[in-house]
């Protein structure tokens, strides 16, 4: 089932320059969503007709609140519109969309959870819900938003491009510097980071699950706006591409063209 809900904004805060942390009261979505899934968020200004895909950063099945952390991408954007909302305002979302990460991992496996920039929010939800050994690697340009919240969930390693915190450089630099090892990788972040992680994982003979981004309209697999290249002919599309919104956003790195 998919739900369209008109949600009350419980709180919204700018946690880092241009990064907003929004909590919503849902009726159903927060009760059924899984880590790695996302919602479509609908702008209200009629000039913006497409919903924005935003990953789920947290969900409380009891209170049914849903947490979204997003970046304002520029002036005159939908995310700019969202950032102007205050608690008490209403916002429409639909979901939950996509497949999410496999959470059914046995206790003695170690998952390397990697997030880069605005790909970090879904990895927090994932880290909190995985019941196995976890190594967490977070890559930032500079400001380490959300990093403090990962602490209880495993060993956290940070890389910053400006070297202000942790390893100077990127997620891969932090992995190498700390000699990190794992049985599988779960990652979300910019394409170059995902590519680097995929080849690192392949070299180490472990599976790498990555969350991809593409422009979306329907979010449910109907319009074929959001495809990515597939190494084999895809069972659904019958051609060599997959729908990021429905067959993903999480893919095994070896099944897609990066």
């Amino acid at each position: 089932m998919k739900y369209l809900e008109n949600c009350r904004i419980v709180s919204q805060e700018e946690i880092s320059p241009g990064i907003f942390d929004m909590n919503l009261q849902t009726a159903d979505i927060a009760g059924i969503c899984r880590p790695g899934q996302f919602v479509m968020v609908y702008p209200q200004d009629g000039k913006r007709i497409l919903p924005r895909p935003i990953s789920i950063c947290g969900a409380d099945p009891e209170s049914r609140t849903l947490r979204l952390v997003y970046r304002v991408t520029g002036p005159n954007t939908g995310t700019g519109e969202f950032s102007g909302y205050v608690s008490g305002d209403m916002i429409r979302i639909s979901g939950p969309m996509g497949n999410g990460f496999d959470m059914d991992i046995s206790g003695d496996e170690t998952v390397l959870i990697a997030g880069g920039g605005i790909g970090i929010p879904p990895m927090l939800f994932t880290a909190r819900n995985l019941n196995c050994k976890k190594v967490i690697v977070l890559g930032y340009r500079s400001d380490t938003f959300l990093a403090g919240e990962f602490g209880q969930n495993g060993d956290v390693f940070i890389a910053t491009e400006d070297g202000s915190c942790g390893t100077p450089g990127n997620v891969l630099d932090a992995i190498r510097e700390n000699g990190l090892k794992a049985d599988r990788v779960y990652a979300c972040g910019p394409k170059p980071m995902l590519r680097a992680l995929a080849s690192w994982a392949e070299a180490n003979g472990i599976p790498c699950y990555i969350s991809l981004e593409e422009r979306m309209a329907c979010g449910i697999g109907a319009c074929l706006s959001c495809v990515c290249g597939s190494r084999e002919t895809d069972a659904h599309t019958n051609v060599r591409n997959k729908r990021v919104c429905k067959d993903g956003p999480v893919f095994l790195s070896t099944e897609v063209e990066l």
């Binding site: 000039k47 913006r48 007709i49 497409l50 593409e214 422009r215 979306m216 309209a217 319009c223 074929l224 706006s225 959001c226 495809v227 990515c228 599309t237 019958n238 051609v239 060599r240 591409n241």
Partner: peptide, 14 residues
């Protein structure tokens, strides 16, 4: 079967 065009396939306009 037709593979369609490369992405980006859509863009929002006013």
């Amino acid at each position: 079967p037709w593979p369609g065009n490369p992405v980006p396939r859509i863009a929002e306009t006013y």
